[in-house]
Design a protein around this nucleic acid. Structure first.
Length: 106
DNA sequence: ACGCTGACGACAG
DNA sequence: GCTGTCGCCAGCG
C-alpha cells in the first residue's frame, strides 16, 4: 500500500470525526480510516499539514496519551494549549486516557 | 538492493 | 513510570 490520495482522504475524514474535547491515537485514526497498522503514516500526513489547516490535528496523540513532540518543543506547547482551550487537561505533555474517543462508538 | 528514517505501537525489564 | 527493543510500512538517498 502506498500513500495514495485515497489514503489521505480516509485519514483526514477520520481525524475530522474526532469531536472537540476528545482525542485519539495515531493508530486509532489509521484503523478508523480502514488502514490498520499505518499509525506511522498517519503521523507522516500530520507532519505535512499546512499551518492553516482546519483539521483538528491537535486531538491526535500517541496511544499512551502523550503528545508526539518533546515536552520542551514549542510544537508541544502549541498542541497542548489548543487542547486546553477545548477543555482537555494536559499535564506533563500528557492527556488522561478518559479523553480518548470510544473506538466502538466510532 | 540496502540502510535509515519517521507527529507510531506493544511489550519486556 | 520509564527506557530499551522490536515490529511496523512507505519513502528516499
Amino acid at each position: 500500500m502506498a500513500i495514495t490520495t485515497q489514503f489521505r482522504q480516509s485519514v483526514y475524514l477520520a481525524v475530522h470525526s474526532v469531536a472537540a474535547g476528545q482525542v485519539a491515537g495515531y493508530g486509532q485514526i489509521a484503523a478508523i480510516a480502514g488502514y490498520p497498522g499505518y499509525a506511522r503514516h498517519v503521523g507522516k500526513l500530520m507532519s505535512q499539514l499546512p499551518n492553516d489547516t482546519e483539521l483538528p490535528w491537535h486531538r491526535i496523540l500517541r496511544s499512551d496519551g502523550k503528545i508526539a513532540f518533546d515536552a520542551q518543543s514549542t510544537a508541544a506547547a502549541r498542541q497542548s494549549q489548543r487542547l486546553i482551550d477545548e477543555g482537555v487537561a494536559v499535564t506533563n505533555n500528557r492527556v488522561p486516557k478518559r479523553y480518548f474517543i470510544d473506538p466502538i462508538t466510532s
